[in-house]
């Protein structure tokens, strides 16, 4: 059971797709001008991550390691395209809000990264949990980046959440002030916010480990 706990902890925090592995930067920077878009990108990626991890882990014994990368790329691109077509055809209203994100997932190396470094070496159950944890961790990171950029850049939070989540979620939409720093909306703003978030995570972790070693030292003494 502790193996699954480790997987979840890895995905959400220690080895987080954005703040731990620094993967998937292209879609992350492109869409995180608002928290809502971060959420949309995160949720769509989670679905594809789980599906890709299940697919790859269930055929892992068949895949020769020399050609594993092209095989994974073909599988992931196919999967994303199938999801795109199916949503467009049968869940068209959902597609109109999520479709834009799905097109960007094809360029998400984070998904290939999980196939390669986890699903190709793990059971289907572990890979499912890993996909879910990684996806949710990715979603949290994107909401954090998007939230800071939106707040500083547009003075709002979760603008247009009702378009993504339905009218019931309009209460999430907050407006604090007009205008804001344009730089934050532009791509450099994404990198600046990411830098500060990474630094904050480092500081927090080093404080915690310092405290942990102090506790250890006192209890040993």
């Amino acid at each position: 059971m502790s193996r699954y706990r480790q997987i979840v902890k890895d995905g959400l925090w220690d080895n987080n797709m954005v703040s731990g592995q620094l993967l998937a930067m292209c879609p992350a920077m492109a869409v995180t001008a608002t928290a809502t878009n971060g959420l949309g990108m995160g949720l769509a990626s989670t679905v594809v991550l789980v599906a890709a991890n299940i697919l790859v882990s269930s055929i892992r014994h068949l895949v020769p390691s020399a050609v594993r990368i092209p095989i994974f790329i073909v599988l992931i691109a196919t999967l994303v395209t199938l999801v795109d077509m199916a949503l467009n055809a049968w869940l068209h209203d959902l597609y109109k809000v999520l479709g834009l994100f799905i097109a960007l997932i094809v360029v998400n190396c984070g998904i290939l990264g999980r196939s390669e470094s986890f699903a190709s070496k793990s059971t289907v159950a572990e890979s499912t949990v890993d996909g879910l944890a990684m996806g949710l961790g990715f979603t949290f990171a994107l909401i954090a980046i998007g939230g800071v950029r939106e707040l500083l850049g547009s003075g709002s939070l979760f603008a247009q959440a009702h378009l993504l989540l339905g009218p019931a979620f309009a209460f999430l939409e907050m407006k604090f002030f007009d205008g804001g720093a344009l730089l934050m909306i532009l791509p450099p703003g994404g990198f600046i916010v990411l830098g500060f978030l990474l630094a904050a995570k480092r500081v927090w972790e080093s404080r915690r480990s310092a405290r942990a070693s102090v506790t250890q030292a006192t209890s040993a003494a």
Binding site: A30, V31, T32, A33, T34, N37, G40, M41, G99, L100, F101, A103, L104, I185
Partner: peptide, 10 residues
């Protein structure tokens, strides 16, 4: 219909 980037072209 379009597939422009959310937050940029949309």
């Amino acid at each position: 219909r379009h597939t422009e980037t959310p937050g940029l072209g949309d």
